[in-house]
Design a protein around this nucleic acid. Structure first.
Lengths: 311, 311
DNA sequence: GTGAAAGCGCTAACAT
DNA sequence: ATGTTAGCGCTTTCAC
């Protein structure tokens, strides 16, 4: 037998508005009634229906987070940052797995229009930024990347600076056989584009043999490692797109007795354990700030500094 | 200017119920009106408000998943199983981080009563099962563990069988210096208890020097590895509670030139890459099935078989 | 085939 | 300080 606020009112002999007042801790309720109502509520184990509250307030205290796939540890850190912040502010976080499927992604933006979410954080995307800009009229959207000239909030790290620092140092050390791994190719991924830019600035055009695409994790790293080690001209350094990949490649080389420097990205625990250099991408801080923006509905672009951690 | 169903009715010159009918694809609407309404909807970029729908239907098509902390890869696999299944069935998944804080956990069960979720999946918990049983009157609850005699649905893997197999084989191989790592101590964690049970059955009482508690991940493994390798009597085998820990311990030993067999749990990619034996805990399948139960609101206990993967 | 109207459970403006 | 009532936007009988 599910009770509603009306029942509580009846049971405690007062009006719904009085009950609502004590529920929401509004002033102007006599101690006597207050206690009586509280007692009835406790006795009958009543809890206000949040769907009705949401409808009434027009908010849901819920935000959606678009992720390509949760299993990539990269996103875990961002999610953690979001989660911590959201909990403190009394928000709930709904995970929106896209698998980089455009239809799914669009569906989630539609749900924003439906008011299922107060806002959406995009950790990675397949839609064009111009399209996402259009969705902002349905609600707050914050992307975890540089949103350029588009009117979309963004929180990101200055990757280019770190990439340039890494490549410049390698060059100064006299290295010049530098291989790269990327996630999605430079055609669609912003970070891939920046990697290229920094590489070319320091070393000129890249030897296509020294590039492996679609490297997202450990298994991808194995493939890349096997490939690089079979080249006639084995690279001196492999600059990877994340720590999981870096570790896997490192192990392949180690097993084959090759001495190749591997550099990761994200500063995950695993790279620390293996003593692999990495770039701290401040993922959890990005999540934290992105939530701040989505929560306050502010339009803003925030750029954090990344740090090259040499090991 | 936010339109509602009433506006659409007015704009297309028919009643709200007719609009509602086409929205929900009910029959008995003339083709002519249907088209007209659809056109108006498209032109004005209208989308029905899901909060109102939820209130009306009494459902939210959302389930909550209690996790101690997302960063533990262990839970990623369960979450992935849940997410895939949920998406297929048109449900949303809200992450409920508990950090094993009892107050937080309780708060989430309260939200179930509030009807914010249609159900909750508990991946790990701090509440007693008896208490959780009481919460089931607020909605469906499914735990990812053996719920024993309590009237709470559970999906889990037969760990004891696998643990027994492992210890029996080690014994047959003549090993007897077996160390253990655990997550939460055997006082509160079910899997810790089972590990103990299987160990004792095969080897009798455990030498307390051969036990390390509170090992959740890589960092924990490092500590354990350092500890074990400093013992006068270094163990021959370390049976760990998860693959991340196993890998970390393995590396510590390797670095110190010690030959110690390490066994993990979860069958994560990392153990495969390192060639470490492990127990496949079927985590993603557990997530998948748990969602099935929560979705159909069935009360059921499902036990899966775990597999010892020797490498 | 279509429409009027009664809720779903709550909040808040308005009256007293 | 307390009660009455009009919505929030939608679905769903129940008439016609």
């Amino acid at each position: 037998m599910k009770l509603n606020i009306k029942d509580i009112a009846k049971l405690s002999g007062c009006s719904v508005s009085t009950v609502s007042r004590v529920l929401n801790q509004h002033p102007y309720v006599s101690e006597e009634k207050k206690e009586r109502i509280l007692k009835v509520i406790a006795e009958h184990d009543y809890a206000p229906n949040s769907q009705a509250r949401d409808l009434q307030s027009g908010e849901s205290k819920t935000i959606g987070v678009i992720v390509p796939a949760i299993s990539l540890i990269y996103f875990d850190q961002i999610i953690n940052g979001i989660l911590e912040n959201a909990f403190e502010k009394g928000y709930m976080v709904t995970l929106l797995p896209s698998n980089y499927d455009k239809a799914k992604e669009k569906y989630y933006f539609t749900q924003l229009k439906n008011k299922r979410f107060d806002g959406i954080i995009v950790t990675s995307r397949v839609h064009e930024m111009a399209e996402i800009e259009k969705f902002t009229k349905y609600g707050t959207i914050v992307c975890c990347e540089d949103t350029g000239d588009y009117l979309v909030s963004g929180v990101y790290v200055d990757r280019l600076a770190a990439y340039n620092q890494v490549f410049a140092e390698l060059k100064a050390q006299g290295k010049n056989k530098i291989a790269l791994t990327l996630g999605r190719s430079q055609l669609i991924s912003n970070s891939a584009r920046l990697t290229f830019e920094a590489y070319q600035k320091n070393f000129g055009p890249l030897n296509p043999d020294y590039l492996v695409d679609n490297c997202y994790d450990g298994p991808g790293g194995i493939i890349a490692g096997d490939y690089f080690s079979q080249l006639k001209d084995v690279p001196e350094v492999v600059f990877t797109n994340n720590d999981e990949t870096a570790v896997a490649i490192f192990q392949v080389f180690q097993r084959k007795g090759l001495t190749v420097q591997v550099i990761g990205q994200s500063n995950m625990y695993v790279s620390e354990a293996m003593g692999i250099s990495t770039i701290d991408l401040q993922l959890s801080e990005i999540g934290r700030l992105a939530f701040d923006l989505v929560c306050t509905k502010e339009y803003q672009k925030i750029c954090l500094k990344s740090e090259y951690i040499k090991r």
